[in-house]
Design a protein around this nucleic acid. Structure first.
Lengths: 336, 336
DNA sequence: TTGTATGCGTTATCAT
DNA sequence: ATGATAACGCATACAA
């Protein structure tokens, strides 16, 4: 591997001069600069970013830690972050699929010295200042977490979005509305449940615990929860699944029971994954701009890393109701 | 930030001893080891991986460079790679969405000193030993590329998969079969076109250039290509889209023309993205285990990085025909 | 404008 | 079993 010394020797200058050519371009004479570049190119010299960051104390890399995520979410969040990071000249070090807190902590530790800041998504835990503690003093942005009040965080307007969805169902005349929840330990799921309840209460419709079916954000769990829902009597006329995967499972269960969507039971979801509009019938859902979530996280993190921004920053990403046919309204037909 | 020196001073030992405690655990006495660990824990010491890798010449990180990819593919490839890497104790440094070769080269350069090896996907270019040259002597695995014969590569059985699909259409009685291609510069697309032609020729069906519609792997391009296809006369009875996104666009175009899928025109795709089975009708497609592609790439790369494997290694990932209803056969109803 | 020398945090080599 | 010290490749304060 060719180092800065090789270039210096070959060009007949000191390593300092070579270094300057690649950094402070101003204070080096035009002649030597050209000479150094020529030699560097000929030798195929590329600065060793690891060594450089050891002394500059900057890696130009952002670490991102994710739990074990379901499809679309995973891809979009990484894409959003990576694109925004790249625009600012930053790399992204990914560590995903953490099922347990210990694994996350371990990954966090091995990132020391490799990153300038961290984006962490860990929705399954309680309020967690232990996360900011584990971040080793690195700038940290929480994504979709129950954050404490000292740590920067970006969240989705889960509660408002769910509430808007349920209010829409109510406006369509539904009174007996079920929900398929996510894990109660999951922050997003808990917030969506809160929005569901708020909408019902605001409309003067009493809560019925029998209509709150436990799910786990997977298609299968939605399928099974919907089967349990169908045994309730009187049967609900609408069901709000806390994410689209569960809504897909719910549609299957309703169909298998010989019922129609939306005529017999309206089904709606949350997230508006790309698949939603291609379903049969197209799925009414709460749209979340996942890539934007990632972008905002990077934006805030770079504010801290590059510009030394300070003070807790809590940002909420608004959602949009996407009305399609699965809820029984005459949904807009969005098109190719 | 607390360094190894702080721990050494506080524990009353040398930095060498502290280092040994965290690496070669054998040659240090039980007493001092415990003492050092205690101090390290109390001070919250975490080794600086950047500094460490400067001298060990190992980063335990794999760089992955991707072009601008469409949804599912992106997520699955990263997930497959990340999971496999994590199992082996490796991190993943991502750099994606490169639209031009120059951007890819730049990213490649900034990875020097940060990674132990590279996985590069660059399907848009010609045979490219310049890529292995640009990799700075780092171990390199090409993904889905026109590789030269000296570089390791993992590819999908594009040609065989496409051929199997077209043969299936022929077996259903179709004789006038169109294809919506991807960019001719794209390796996967070119191979799929080759498979299409091979199947027709093997069946004694002549090639008709008018039935080869140019697409670009996007839904819209599939939609537009299908519209052009519908003007051909006699009209094709089946169309094979080179990927699922274009198949989705094609279905929209066929429907808008007042025709039915599959009764009037059979439509099939390639990739078998998750959405395929939820479409209406469910889309017949060629299944590619994308995560497996990533896993194999990491597997091979680590063979080289860790075990010094050598010699060109070319691996092909087989595909599976997923027959559903969009082709007119009685497809299997896979289920939740 | 250029060169010399020091240090970033760690591991490796050689002593002791 | 442990300590002193030289690397690793680079950037930078200071000297020339």
């Amino acid at each position: 591997m060719v180092t800065i010394r090789d270039v210096a020797r070959e060009a007949g200058v000191s390593v300092a001069t070579v270094s300057r050519v690649f950094n402070d371009r101003t204070i080096v004479s035009e002649g030597t600069a050209r000479q150094v570049r020529e030699v560097a190119a000929r030798l195929g010299y590329v600065p060793h970013s690891g060594a450089r960051s050891l002394i500059t104390n900057k890696t130009h890399t952002i670490g991102i830690l994710l739990p074990d995520l379901y499809g679309e979410f995973f891809s979009e969040i990484i894409r959003g972050i990576d694109q925004a990071a790249q625009r600012s000249g930053y790399h992204v070090l990914v560590s995903s699929s953490h099922a347990e807190r210990s694994g996350l902590d371990a990954a966090l530790r091995t990132m020391r010295g490799r990153v300038d800041g961290l984006i962490v998504m860990w929705p399954e835990s309680e309020t967690d200042e232990s996360l900011s503690h584990a971040s080793l003093g690195l700038p940290l942005v929480l994504l979709s977490c129950r954050g404490d009040h000292e740590t920067d965080s970006i969240t989705v307007a889960n509660c408002d979005g769910a509430r808007a969805m349920v209010e829409h169902l109510i406006s369509l005349g539904h009174r007996r509305i079920a929900i398929i929840t996510g894990s109660p330990r999951n922050f997003d799921a808990a917030e969506r449940l809160r929005g569901y309840r708020a909408a019902l209460e605001a409309a003067g419709i009493g809560l019925d615990p029998a209509l709150e079916l436990a799910g786990a954000f997977s298609e299968r769990s939605g399928y099974e929860a919907a089967q349990r829902m169908l045994t309730r009597s009187p049967r609900p006329t609408a069901v709000f699944a806390s994410n689209d995967s569960m809504a897909i499972g719910a549609v299957s269960a309703v169909r298998e029971a010989g019922l129609r969507v939306p005529e017999d039971i309206a089904v709606t979801g949350f997230d508006d994954i790309p698949m939603a509009r291609y379903m049969n019938p197209p799925l009414t859902s709460v749209h979340v701009d996942i890539a934007a979530l990632g972008e905002r996280a990077i934006g805030r993190l770079l504010d801290v890393v590059q510009r030394g921004a300070t003070g807790p920053h809590r940002d909420t990403l608004d959602t949009t109701l996407m009305i399609r046919r699965s809820c029984g309204a005459n949904g807009s037909h969005d098109h190719a």
